[in-house]
Design a protein around this nucleic acid. Structure first.
Lengths: 182, 182
DNA sequence: GACGATACGGAGATAGTCTCCGTTTAGCAA
DNA sequence: TTGCTAAACGGAGACTATCTCCGTATCGTC
């Protein structure tokens, strides 16, 4: 990659992170290009689809995901607390910008999504937490971990669309956690 | 309302129902106008916002909602079955067209939404089912019924966005039902 | 310093939303 | 019937966003 190309690439990602945080995932891409000081052509050459840009933005995000899972697994205490803490982290992680929960959760089941690798990191993190509980025999067996992602993702999605805060989300996560534990 | 106005109004609603079913809730409104044989101006005068049109489409829908709740309440059998049957109906009702679950669920918490009256019918139907279970002492007390709507709406939303069918949705509804029952 | 590959960027095609306003029509009253 | 007015129509076009094409500029190498 040529030096000027890399410079523009990085600058676009940086600006996009800012704009998406301000205006949500639906922000205008031409606006991103303008703020980054490049033409729309340049933006679309680097990122043919909106989701390619999202994928680049999420590059740094994957580290935080695994960290959060590590932290949850290190938790000493009741299984219910562990699961709830993880769920809250999960919601926070995918709710970084408006529209994110829906995008990430629906990409989870789509192998062709440009952000699929990022989703897999999240799915694997969730898997580790679920496996730990399963090994302790604390969890019902008849549900796939992908469905768990969907359940929690669904809650994050409605919270995102309805502008709910963490305390309002908590009871919904409790219901799901209690439904999963046995 | 003048006769020609009513004629156009009805025709737009009829066509919109068809187009939304075909193309989802994001379908072009100019396309609806074209198919209805009216100018865009006419459509936007009758329905200033997209949701006003959705509200009109849902007029016949409210009857089905109350019917479904009646049917659920008439159910003889375990509470779990009753709740699950109702949840399945609930998901089916709000999944009429693509994008519907998200729209309806987020409108539930927004008093200014043009479709709020329709949402209230749905919320009341849900309330009746929940109340029945609460009276039997079968349900946990620490959760509002609006939250129940959000939980089930969240599942419907991810199912809608991920093109999941009813059998795939079922286990998620079971988790929520089990988490709510005690 | 010259050359080819690579990348830039903006004009413009396409598509959707929504408004404004000149034209038409329904419905009523004379 | 005819004439009138309020109501309704409809389409041109302003505005915004997405995305492409291609002439121009720049990088990096020989």
């Amino acid at each position: 990659m040529r030096a000027d190309a890399k410079r523009n690439y990085d600058r676009i990602v940086e600006v996009a992170r800012e704009v998406f945080r301000e205006q949500g995932y639906d922000a205008s891409l031409d606006e991103v290009a303008k703020r980054a000081g490049v033409g729309p052509g340049t933006l679309y050459r680097h990122f043919p689809q909106r989701e390619n840009l999202l994928d680049a933005i999420m590059q740094s995000w994957v580290d935080r995901v695994t960290e959060a899972a590590d932290k949850a697994l290190a938790h000493e205490g009741p299984d219910r607390e562990l699961l709830l803490d993880w769920f809250q982290e999960y919601v926070a992680l995918i709710s970084q910008h408006k529209g994110g929960p829906a995008k990430i959760t629906s990409a989870m089941g789509d192998p062709d999504s440009p952000i699929i690798t990022k989703c897999q990191v999240l799915a694997e993190a969730n898997q580790r937490v679920i496996d730990r509980l399963r090994q302790g025999g604390a969890l019902r067996e008849d549900i796939e971990t992908l469905q768990v992602c969907r359940l929690v993702g669904g809650i994050a999605t409605v919270a995102d669309q309805g502008d709910l805060d963490a305390p309002a989300v908590r009871p919904m996560l409790e219901v799901v956690a209690d439904g999963l534990l046995r």
